[in-house]
Amino acid sequence: MSTLKTRYTLTQSQKMMIFVLSMSLYGLSNMFTELIPSVQLGPVELSVEYFAFIPLTLCMLFHPLYAAVGAAVGEVIFGELMLGQFGGLGELEKFITFSLAMYIAGRMVSDPKNRRQVGIAAISGVAIHQFCSSVIDIVKVWVGVEELEAVKGLAESIVIIEGVGFLNDVLFSGILFALLPTMYLVPRLYGKIEPLLGMKPRERNMQYASGGGNRLSPKLLGGGIVLALVALGAELLSESGWSIGEFELPGAESHEASLIWVSMLAAALIAALAIVFTLRRASRRRQEAGQLDG
Protein backbone atom coordinates (compact mmCIF):
# COMPACT_ATOMS: atom_id res chain seq x y z
CA MET A 1 0.00 0.00 0.00
CA SER A 2 2.99 2.26 0.16
CA THR A 3 2.71 3.07 -3.47
CA LEU A 4 -0.53 3.27 -5.26
CA LYS A 5 -0.27 0.54 -7.83
CA THR A 6 -3.21 -0.49 -9.88
CA ARG A 7 -2.60 -4.06 -8.94
CA TYR A 8 -4.03 -5.62 -5.85
CA THR A 9 -1.13 -5.71 -3.47
CA LEU A 10 -1.05 -6.61 0.17
CA THR A 11 1.47 -6.23 2.92
CA GLN A 12 2.55 -9.28 4.87
CA SER A 13 0.39 -8.34 7.82
CA GLN A 14 -2.65 -7.78 5.68
CA LYS A 15 -2.28 -11.28 4.37
CA MET A 16 -2.06 -12.47 7.94
CA MET A 17 -5.24 -10.58 8.77
CA ILE A 18 -7.14 -12.21 5.94
CA PHE A 19 -5.83 -15.57 7.02
CA VAL A 20 -6.80 -15.07 10.65
CA LEU A 21 -10.20 -13.68 9.71
CA SER A 22 -11.04 -16.52 7.40
CA MET A 23 -9.73 -19.11 9.81
CA SER A 24 -11.68 -17.93 12.83
CA LEU A 25 -14.95 -17.36 11.03
CA TYR A 26 -15.06 -20.52 9.00
CA GLY A 27 -13.71 -22.50 11.91
CA LEU A 28 -16.50 -21.27 14.13
CA SER A 29 -19.16 -22.00 11.54
CA ASN A 30 -17.70 -25.43 11.13
CA MET A 31 -18.23 -26.19 14.78
CA PHE A 32 -21.88 -25.41 14.37
CA THR A 33 -22.40 -27.35 11.19
CA GLU A 34 -20.81 -30.33 12.91
CA LEU A 35 -23.51 -30.04 15.53
CA ILE A 36 -26.60 -29.31 13.42
CA PRO A 37 -28.58 -32.52 13.21
CA SER A 38 -29.23 -33.77 9.73
CA VAL A 39 -32.58 -34.85 8.42
CA GLN A 40 -32.46 -38.20 6.71
CA LEU A 41 -34.98 -39.01 4.07
CA GLY A 42 -34.03 -42.53 3.19
CA PRO A 43 -30.47 -42.69 1.99
CA VAL A 44 -30.62 -39.03 1.09
CA GLU A 45 -29.33 -36.93 3.89
CA LEU A 46 -30.56 -33.38 4.07
CA SER A 47 -27.74 -31.93 6.00
CA VAL A 48 -26.02 -28.62 6.34
CA GLU A 49 -22.75 -29.80 4.98
CA TYR A 50 -20.83 -26.61 5.57
CA PHE A 51 -21.22 -22.87 5.53
CA ALA A 52 -19.32 -22.52 2.31
CA PHE A 53 -20.53 -18.97 1.96
CA ILE A 54 -17.97 -17.78 4.49
CA PRO A 55 -14.81 -18.77 2.62
CA LEU A 56 -16.51 -18.02 -0.69
CA THR A 57 -17.38 -14.50 0.39
CA LEU A 58 -13.93 -13.85 1.77
CA CYS A 59 -12.24 -15.33 -1.28
CA MET A 60 -14.21 -13.02 -3.50
CA LEU A 61 -13.56 -9.94 -1.42
CA PHE A 62 -9.92 -10.48 -0.56
CA HIS A 63 -6.99 -12.31 -1.96
CA PRO A 64 -8.44 -15.79 -2.54
CA LEU A 65 -5.33 -17.73 -1.65
CA TYR A 66 -5.07 -16.56 1.96
CA ALA A 67 -8.79 -16.71 2.51
CA ALA A 68 -9.00 -20.22 1.08
CA VAL A 69 -6.07 -21.65 2.98
CA GLY A 70 -7.21 -19.84 6.13
CA ALA A 71 -10.64 -21.40 5.89
CA ALA A 72 -9.20 -24.86 5.35
CA VAL A 73 -6.93 -24.44 8.36
CA GLY A 74 -9.89 -23.14 10.37
CA GLU A 75 -11.87 -26.23 9.55
CA VAL A 76 -9.08 -28.52 10.64
CA ILE A 77 -8.49 -26.64 13.87
CA PHE A 78 -11.99 -25.75 15.04
CA GLY A 79 -14.13 -28.34 13.35
CA GLU A 80 -11.85 -31.30 13.80
CA LEU A 81 -9.03 -30.93 16.28
CA MET A 82 -10.93 -29.01 18.91
CA LEU A 83 -13.94 -31.28 18.76
CA GLY A 84 -11.62 -34.24 18.97
CA GLN A 85 -12.85 -35.43 15.59
CA PHE A 86 -9.66 -34.99 13.68
CA GLY A 87 -9.61 -37.65 11.03
CA GLY A 88 -5.86 -37.40 10.69
CA LEU A 89 -4.56 -38.15 7.25
CA GLY A 90 -8.03 -38.28 5.81
CA GLU A 91 -8.29 -34.56 6.39
CA LEU A 92 -5.39 -33.92 4.12
CA GLU A 93 -7.35 -34.54 0.97
CA LYS A 94 -10.23 -32.44 2.27
CA PHE A 95 -7.82 -29.65 3.05
CA ILE A 96 -6.40 -29.62 -0.43
CA THR A 97 -9.60 -30.04 -2.42
CA PHE A 98 -11.44 -27.50 -0.30
CA SER A 99 -8.86 -24.77 -0.52
CA LEU A 100 -8.41 -25.40 -4.22
CA ALA A 101 -12.14 -25.16 -4.88
CA MET A 102 -12.52 -21.99 -2.82
CA TYR A 103 -9.50 -20.45 -4.48
CA ILE A 104 -10.83 -21.12 -7.95
CA ALA A 105 -14.22 -19.70 -6.99
CA GLY A 106 -12.53 -16.58 -5.69
CA ARG A 107 -10.55 -16.17 -8.86
CA MET A 108 -13.65 -16.49 -11.00
CA VAL A 109 -15.01 -13.22 -9.65
CA SER A 110 -13.65 -10.07 -11.14
CA ASP A 111 -16.40 -7.74 -10.04
CA PRO A 112 -17.79 -8.29 -6.54
CA LYS A 113 -20.80 -6.13 -7.35
CA ASN A 114 -21.89 -8.41 -10.15
CA ARG A 115 -24.35 -10.78 -8.52
CA ARG A 116 -24.52 -13.15 -11.43
CA GLN A 117 -20.81 -13.63 -11.51
CA VAL A 118 -20.74 -14.11 -7.76
CA GLY A 119 -23.52 -16.67 -7.93
CA ILE A 120 -21.91 -18.70 -10.68
CA ALA A 121 -18.60 -18.69 -8.89
CA ALA A 122 -20.19 -19.71 -5.60
CA ILE A 123 -22.00 -22.70 -6.98
CA SER A 124 -19.00 -23.75 -9.05
CA GLY A 125 -16.81 -23.64 -5.98
CA VAL A 126 -19.11 -26.01 -4.14
CA ALA A 127 -19.49 -28.28 -7.14
CA ILE A 128 -15.75 -28.57 -7.67
CA HIS A 129 -15.16 -29.43 -4.06
CA GLN A 130 -18.01 -31.90 -3.81
CA PHE A 131 -17.04 -33.62 -7.01
CA CYS A 132 -13.46 -34.10 -5.88
CA SER A 133 -14.46 -35.41 -2.49
CA SER A 134 -17.03 -37.80 -3.95
CA VAL A 135 -14.43 -39.30 -6.22
CA ILE A 136 -12.02 -39.65 -3.34
CA ASP A 137 -14.67 -41.27 -1.14
CA ILE A 138 -15.39 -43.88 -3.79
CA VAL A 139 -11.69 -44.62 -4.12
CA LYS A 140 -11.45 -44.97 -0.37
CA VAL A 141 -14.04 -47.71 -0.13
CA TRP A 142 -12.33 -49.39 -3.04
CA VAL A 143 -9.18 -49.47 -0.99
CA GLY A 144 -10.76 -50.26 2.34
CA VAL A 145 -12.92 -53.18 1.35
CA GLU A 146 -11.21 -56.37 0.44
CA GLU A 147 -12.41 -57.93 -2.82
CA LEU A 148 -14.91 -55.26 -3.55
CA GLU A 149 -16.04 -57.02 -6.70
CA ALA A 150 -16.90 -60.14 -4.79
CA VAL A 151 -19.61 -58.38 -2.86
CA LYS A 152 -22.54 -58.08 -5.17
CA GLY A 153 -23.98 -54.64 -5.51
CA LEU A 154 -21.53 -52.91 -3.24
CA ALA A 155 -19.74 -51.04 -5.97
CA GLU A 156 -23.00 -49.79 -7.42
CA SER A 157 -24.36 -48.77 -4.09
CA ILE A 158 -21.29 -46.77 -3.27
CA VAL A 159 -21.49 -44.91 -6.54
CA ILE A 160 -25.19 -44.25 -5.96
CA ILE A 161 -24.66 -43.04 -2.42
CA GLU A 162 -21.87 -40.77 -3.43
CA GLY A 163 -23.79 -39.53 -6.43
CA VAL A 164 -26.84 -38.72 -4.36
CA GLY A 165 -24.62 -37.16 -1.76
CA PHE A 166 -23.03 -35.02 -4.41
CA LEU A 167 -26.36 -33.85 -5.75
CA ASN A 168 -27.67 -33.20 -2.27
CA ASP A 169 -24.64 -31.21 -1.29
CA VAL A 170 -24.68 -29.12 -4.42
CA LEU A 171 -28.42 -28.60 -4.67
CA PHE A 172 -29.34 -28.35 -0.99
CA SER A 173 -26.28 -27.12 0.87
CA GLY A 174 -24.89 -25.50 -2.25
CA ILE A 175 -27.89 -23.34 -2.96
CA LEU A 176 -28.96 -22.61 0.60
CA PHE A 177 -25.60 -22.17 2.23
CA ALA A 178 -23.35 -21.11 -0.58
CA LEU A 179 -25.22 -19.52 -3.45
CA LEU A 180 -27.84 -17.43 -1.69
CA PRO A 181 -25.81 -16.14 1.26
CA THR A 182 -22.83 -15.37 -0.93
CA MET A 183 -24.94 -13.39 -3.35
CA TYR A 184 -26.41 -11.53 -0.41
CA LEU A 185 -23.17 -10.92 1.44
CA VAL A 186 -20.56 -10.13 -1.18
CA PRO A 187 -22.11 -6.96 -2.58
CA ARG A 188 -23.07 -5.81 0.90
CA LEU A 189 -19.65 -6.34 2.42
CA TYR A 190 -17.76 -5.03 -0.55
CA GLY A 191 -16.20 -1.70 0.29
CA LYS A 192 -17.22 -2.01 3.90
CA ILE A 193 -15.18 -4.76 5.46
CA GLU A 194 -11.92 -3.77 3.78
CA PRO A 195 -11.44 -0.48 5.63
CA LEU A 196 -11.89 -2.34 8.91
CA LEU A 197 -8.79 -4.29 8.03
CA GLY A 198 -7.07 -1.14 6.92
CA MET A 199 -6.94 -1.97 3.25
CA LYS A 200 -8.46 -0.72 0.08
CA PRO A 201 -11.24 -2.71 -1.56
CA ARG A 202 -10.45 -4.75 -4.62
CA GLU A 203 -11.17 -2.59 -7.55
CA ARG A 204 -13.54 -3.98 -10.06
CA ASN A 205 -11.97 -5.87 -12.87
CA MET A 206 -8.70 -5.56 -11.06
CA GLN A 207 -6.21 -8.28 -11.52
CA TYR A 208 -4.38 -10.16 -8.90
CA ALA A 209 -0.73 -9.60 -8.70
CA SER A 210 0.18 -13.11 -9.75
CA GLY A 211 0.70 -11.91 -13.29
CA GLY A 212 -0.98 -12.95 -16.49
CA GLY A 213 -3.79 -11.04 -18.07
CA ASN A 214 -6.05 -14.03 -18.27
CA ARG A 215 -8.37 -14.87 -15.46
CA LEU A 216 -7.46 -18.51 -15.72
CA SER A 217 -3.80 -17.78 -15.76
CA PRO A 218 -1.24 -20.48 -16.45
CA LYS A 219 -0.08 -20.16 -12.86
CA LEU A 220 -3.51 -20.87 -11.52
CA LEU A 221 -3.93 -23.85 -13.75
CA GLY A 222 -0.46 -25.08 -12.92
CA GLY A 223 -1.06 -24.68 -9.22
CA GLY A 224 -4.37 -26.45 -9.51
CA ILE A 225 -2.84 -29.35 -11.31
CA VAL A 226 -0.01 -29.64 -8.82
CA LEU A 227 -2.44 -29.64 -5.91
CA ALA A 228 -4.68 -32.13 -7.67
CA LEU A 229 -1.68 -34.37 -8.26
CA VAL A 230 -0.69 -34.18 -4.63
CA ALA A 231 -4.22 -35.09 -3.60
CA LEU A 232 -4.29 -37.92 -6.07
CA GLY A 233 -0.84 -38.99 -4.98
CA ALA A 234 -1.98 -39.29 -1.41
CA GLU A 235 -4.71 -41.62 -2.55
CA LEU A 236 -2.54 -43.53 -4.98
CA LEU A 237 -0.11 -44.09 -2.19
CA SER A 238 -2.72 -45.93 -0.23
CA GLU A 239 -3.69 -47.86 -3.31
CA SER A 240 -0.17 -49.05 -3.91
CA GLY A 241 -0.01 -50.12 -0.29
CA TRP A 242 -3.19 -52.00 -0.86
CA SER A 243 -1.76 -53.99 -3.74
CA ILE A 244 1.30 -54.85 -1.72
CA GLY A 245 -1.00 -56.16 0.94
CA GLU A 246 -2.82 -58.23 -1.62
CA PHE A 247 0.40 -59.63 -2.86
CA GLU A 248 1.65 -60.59 0.53
CA LEU A 249 -1.44 -62.05 2.06
CA PRO A 250 -1.14 -65.38 0.33
CA GLY A 251 2.61 -65.45 0.99
CA ALA A 252 4.56 -67.75 3.28
CA GLU A 253 3.10 -67.82 6.78
CA SER A 254 6.38 -67.65 8.60
CA HIS A 255 7.43 -64.43 6.93
CA GLU A 256 4.05 -62.89 6.79
CA ALA A 257 4.14 -60.98 10.02
CA SER A 258 7.53 -59.46 9.44
CA LEU A 259 6.69 -58.67 5.84
CA ILE A 260 3.57 -56.82 6.87
CA TRP A 261 5.57 -55.05 9.50
CA VAL A 262 8.07 -53.84 7.01
CA SER A 263 5.45 -52.77 4.54
CA MET A 264 3.50 -51.01 7.21
CA LEU A 265 6.51 -49.16 8.47
CA ALA A 266 7.31 -48.13 4.96
CA ALA A 267 3.78 -46.99 4.39
CA ALA A 268 3.77 -45.01 7.61
CA LEU A 269 7.05 -43.41 6.69
CA ILE A 270 5.92 -42.51 3.21
CA ALA A 271 2.69 -41.12 4.54
CA ALA A 272 4.54 -39.02 7.09
CA LEU A 273 6.91 -37.75 4.46
CA ALA A 274 4.02 -36.99 2.17
CA ILE A 275 2.34 -34.86 4.82
CA VAL A 276 5.41 -32.95 5.70
CA PHE A 277 6.21 -32.50 2.07
CA THR A 278 2.77 -31.25 1.11
CA LEU A 279 2.52 -28.89 4.04
CA ARG A 280 5.97 -27.53 3.44
CA ARG A 281 5.14 -27.15 -0.15
CA ALA A 282 1.91 -25.38 0.65
CA SER A 283 3.71 -22.95 2.90
CA ARG A 284 6.44 -22.41 0.36
CA ARG A 285 3.83 -21.82 -2.27
CA ARG A 286 2.21 -19.34 0.04
CA GLN A 287 5.49 -17.57 0.53
CA GLU A 288 6.21 -17.54 -3.14
CA ALA A 289 2.81 -16.12 -3.81
CA GLY A 290 3.49 -13.59 -1.14
CA GLN A 291 6.66 -12.49 -2.80
CA LEU A 292 4.92 -12.23 -6.08
CA ASP A 293 2.34 -10.02 -4.51
CA GLY A 294 4.55 -7.92 -2.41
Binding site: P43, V145, E146, V151, K152, G153, L154, E156, S157
Partner: peptide, 15 residues
Protein backbone atom coordinates in the same frame (compact mmCIF):
# COMPACT_ATOMS: atom_id res chain seq x y z
CA UNK B 1 -28.38 -50.43 -0.78
CA UNK B 2 -26.15 -53.34 -1.61
CA UNK B 3 -29.02 -55.63 -0.55
CA UNK B 4 -31.16 -53.78 -3.03
CA UNK B 5 -28.63 -54.40 -5.76
CA UNK B 6 -28.75 -58.10 -5.13
CA UNK B 7 -26.16 -58.57 -2.44
CA UNK B 8 -26.83 -60.71 0.59
CA UNK B 9 -25.91 -60.97 4.21
CA UNK B 10 -22.45 -61.96 3.12
CA UNK B 11 -21.76 -58.39 2.04
CA UNK B 12 -22.02 -57.43 5.68
CA UNK B 13 -18.76 -59.11 6.55
CA UNK B 14 -16.35 -57.06 4.41
CA UNK B 15 -18.22 -54.04 5.52
Amino acid sequence: LSLFFGGGAESLLPM
